[in-house]
Design a protein around this nucleic acid. Structure first.
Length: 553
RNA sequence: GGGCCAGUAGCUCAGCUUGGAUAUAUCAAUACCAAAAAGAGCGAUAGCCUUCUAAGCUAUAGGUCCGGGGUUCGAAUCCUCGCUGGCCCGCCA
């Protein structure tokens, strides 16, 4: 598409002497492919924009890329050469195949991407899954753009929450992953009723920090149970990690001491009235009453922020950092960024997502008011089976999972991360409209046509693609690389999700209006190439969301 | 109390970073008429399967783009004051 746009800009620059020419896309494709609004010139030229448009229009001569210009009121509407763009785009897609849409801008650049990092206290709920889905999709997108991405999961294995879980599991035999949520809810309730138990929790933490072996084993056992359970669920969804970094590693090793020494050199570190090491953060416009970050307890043991800074220092050594975190971490993350700036280091780019709400309030692991990701997955698979049973005698389990997991992921990924989403079972389990199954269905339809076509002529004459819908499809296909790079630069997977839906929608519309297999032979050949390109692009895009395709459904 | 984010159709959301689809100025005696003035999905209503898979398509209804003020030729988009919802301001992580 670039060549086409450039040709227009070149023409306009020459005729108007403007330094920056901004082109727009007309609201309706019948009005043109690109438009130049003449309002900007009205003051300077002392003419009405309509007159200016007329004048400029007369100066235009068709060239290799731009076929004609139409003047509609104050707008100069350019029509690009349809044959050229169809040929170029479709050939690009079919030549580059799985690479279509990718760029090599990340070549030789390393990115350390941390995501998920759920507290190892229970099975993840759908709110937390948002982190993993966004993170995993970003990993895929950035790798597609050529970056070398290392995926990290930070396991908060030494927290108060784990201590609570250890206390709750005391005396219980064979604690399994499925028991954890119940234990966690119960112990929270018990502590609420009996605040003395809180002291026991802190006691456990204290023992752990002093290196008490029995305590350490208890913690490790329960964390292992939990992390394994979480990983199993996430890996079922195709989400993988390269490294699991345990917070406990930073509990007693020298790194926290080294970090303190490094921070001391900034002159912002001081010991407060409680004998704690504290970082002064004045001058960073942090939205808090007293801008400080407390790094240790009075007894010198480390607090989470210190361990986290040490962890960040380790990660920064390896490459550029990106991390996916809930909106509750926003201020804290600004504080961490401020600390890293003091050390003249580049803070991580952070993608914050808002929480998933239930219709009757917030989701909370502590209160047990939640929808577990695994339950959501199960329900979705059941629904997919049901749908498959309607169509076939035998249910293909693999297909059911592909459809169900696609729907689960897409439902979360299609929304921009900063939005609070309200989880609604009926809507979440819908396989119609703007959903993954809709997109997968378009893909399956194309596959089916191509299968029936048997032979495809790769040299078909693409000039025969003259229909309005065909042009719109070609243009959408040509926009795919731009969508990917925008999504990569802004770290926004939902742009790809929205794009894929509009492509599938456009295809379905086309499918209903025009015959492909029964078209006149030469046109048929050209159309087969067009839909092959749509199929390829859809596959590439879904893959970036971590969603699989089906040849039949 | 302070900070950050969101508010678009009954419901769930795109669009907002980068303002744009008939303005301004001038002319014109008036009146009238016509046209234009936001996109999906779900849900609702009415249709479409001897035709490449109906998980699909078509049509209709549904809007003070949270409210007021401002900037601009032009505002869902920018600024400002409010309102509502979410998140945050710990010897928790």
């Amino acid at each position: 598409m670039d060549d086409f746009k450039e040709a227009i800009i070149k023409f306009l620059k020459k005729e108007t002497n403007l330094e920056n020419v901004e082109l727009e896309i007309p609201p309706n494709p019948e009005m043109g492919d690109y438009a130049f609004p003449c309002f900007v010139l009205a003051k300077e030229w002392k003419k009405s924009p309509n007159e200016i448009a007329q004048e400029l229009g007369k100066k235009f001569k068709p060239n290799d890329f731009v076929a004609e210009v139409k003047i509609i009121g104050p707008y100069l509407n350019f029509f690009i050469d349809k044959n050229k763009i169809a040929e170029k785009t479709i050939k690009d897609v079919l030549k580059q195949k799985d690479k279509y849409g990718s760029a090599n801008i990340g070549k030789n650049k390393k990115i350390i991407l941390e995501h998920t990092s759920i507290n190892p206290n229970a099975s993840p709920h759908v709110g937390r899954a948002r982190n993993a889905f966004i993170g995993d999709s970003m990993v895929r997108i950035l790798r597609f753009q050529g970056y070398k991405v290392e995926v990290h999961y930070f396991v908060n294995d030494v927290g108060k929450q784990i201590a609570m879980l250890v206390l709750g599991a005391e005396g219980k035999k064979n604690v399994s992953f499925d028991n954890l949520l119940g234990i966690y809810i119960e112990i929270n309730k018990r502590i609420e009723e009996n605040p003395d138990l809180e002291k026991e929790v802190l006691g456990l933490l204290n023992k752990l920090e002093k290196g008490d072996k029995a305590t350490k084993n208890k913690f490790e056992k329960i964390v292992k149970t939990c992390v394994n359970g979480q990983i199993k669920i996430l890996s079922e969804l195709g989400i993988k990690y390269d490294f699991f970094d345990y917070e406990s590693k930073y509990l007693r090793n020298k790194k926290t001491q080294e970090t303190l020494k490094r921070l001391e050199k900034t002159g912002k570190l001081f010991i407060d009235g409680f004998n704690r090491w504290v970082m002064d953060q004045k001058g960073y416009e942090l939205g808090m009453k007293i801008p400080v970050l407390v790094l240790t307890r009075g007894d010198g043991t480390s607090l989470y922020p210190l361990r986290d800074i040490a962890y960040n220092l380790d990660k920064i050594k390896k490459g550029e950092n990106i991390v996916v975190l809930g909106e509750d971490q926003k201020l804290y993350q600004e504080q961490i960024a401020a600390v890293l700036k003091e050390l003249e280091l580049k803070p991580p780019r952070v993608v914050h997502y808002s929480f998933v709400l239930l219709q009757d309030g917030k989701m909370s692991t502590r209160k047990g008011n939640l929808v577990l990701l695994e339950d959501f997955m199960k329900e979705a698979v059941n629904k997919a089976r049901e749908e498959l049973r309607k169509r076939y005698n035998k249910v293909d389990e693999k297909a059911a999972k592909i459809i169900a997991y696609g729907a689960v992921k897409y439902g979360i990924l299609r929304v921009s991360p900063e939005k609070n989403v309200i989880f609604d079972w009926q809507q979440a389990l819908s396989f119609e409209g703007e959903t993954a199954p809709y997109i997968q269905y378009a893909y399956a339809r194309i596959s089916s046509i191509l299968k029936k076509a048997k032979k495809i002529n790769p040299k078909a004459d693409l000039k025969l693609l003259k229909e309005k819908e065909e042009m719109e499809l070609v243009k959408l296909l040509s926009n795919f690389p731009d969508t990917i790079s925008k999504s990569a630069n802004q770290l926004k997977p939902h742009l790809i999700a929205n794009y894929l839906y509009s492509l599938a929608q456009k295809f379905n519309e086309y499918y209903h209006i025009h015959q492909i297999l029964k078209a006149e032979p030469k046109t048929r050949d050209a159309r087969l190439l067009l839909i092959s390109a749509i199929k390829q692009t859809t596959k590439n895009g879904l893959n970036l969301l971590g969603i699989d395709v089906l040849g039949r459904m």
